[in-house]
Write a protein that binds this DNA or RNA. Structure first.
Lengths: 131, 131
DNA sequence: GTAGCTGCAAACCTTTTGCGCGAAC
DNA sequence: GTTCGCGCAAAAGGTTTGCAGCTAC
């Protein structure tokens, strides 16, 4: 079972009060002054734990992927195996206009769906049956 | 000026003919059998060069970022400095339904705009003036 | 007392870089 | 011949993990 941890709460607060969608390193740097013994490993462990719990949201993967299909189009990524596939969904230029504001120059957008791919879905199913 | 390179063309073909939005490692593995002397560094160099040229598209960054705002909302990322900010844009659940198909179980989507943040925009401006 | 969590350090994986040689022009 | 690109190997991030001690319960 999960236990209370001072570190975890501070890490959560650091993410919550930051406006910059911090990386693990940023959280670590922000907390270091008040928690000199804090370790980066602990930050990573807790961030992932909270993300899995649904208490935080993790953005972006950590491996670059490449696509030779240039016209803007949506993608779908399997949250289990990381596979990425194309999706036939029209690009909506109206969104670009909506997004403009606050001094940003918008050049386009990336629409990525999350889901479970057929392969992983089948595995999940048989895992459940196994119990 | 840029020159023709056998390696670059093969790398491009590997990405183009793959349906899986390959990582650099995947491209490397795919080409290794026919090009045993190929180096991973070359794959990275060429992928980035082609992405910059606009011949390929690069998906996802390579640093994880975290967000404590759970309700689905859009983000905007600066293509120059990597900063990420929130965007007030309504989540459109209709998209989830549209995306379903091909055996995927869709759980949601992530909408990330690309653009240049106010700070980097100002820098770019002064760079241009400098010329 | 018993898990779970931490700090530390080492390992790992992905990506970048310096260098001397070879290829394109 | 000159310049750019390559292979190689080392280095530089970023992230994960094993372990012994500490903490919440």
């Amino acid at each position: 079972m999960q236990r209370f941890s001072q570190q975890r709460e501070r890490i959560y607060e650091a993410v919550r009060t930051s406006m910059e969608h911090p990386t693990a390193q940023m959280v670590y740097d922000a907390l270091r002054p008040e928690m000199p013994r804090l370790s980066l490993g602990t930050v990573y462990r807790n961030l992932h734990q909270m993300a899995q719990e649904g208490r935080l949201r993790e953005l972006e993967g950590s491996v670059a992927r490449f696509d030779a299909v240039l016209p803007p189009h949506a993608h779908i990524r399997c949250v289990r195996c990381g596979q990425v596939a194309d999706l036939a969904l029209p690009y909506d230029p109206a969104l670009d206009r909506e997004a403009v504001g606050g001094g940003w120059a918008v050049t386009g957008y990336e629409l990525v769906f999350n889901g479970v791919c057929p392969t992983c879905g089948a595995e999940q199913l048989s895992e459940n049956q196994r119990v």
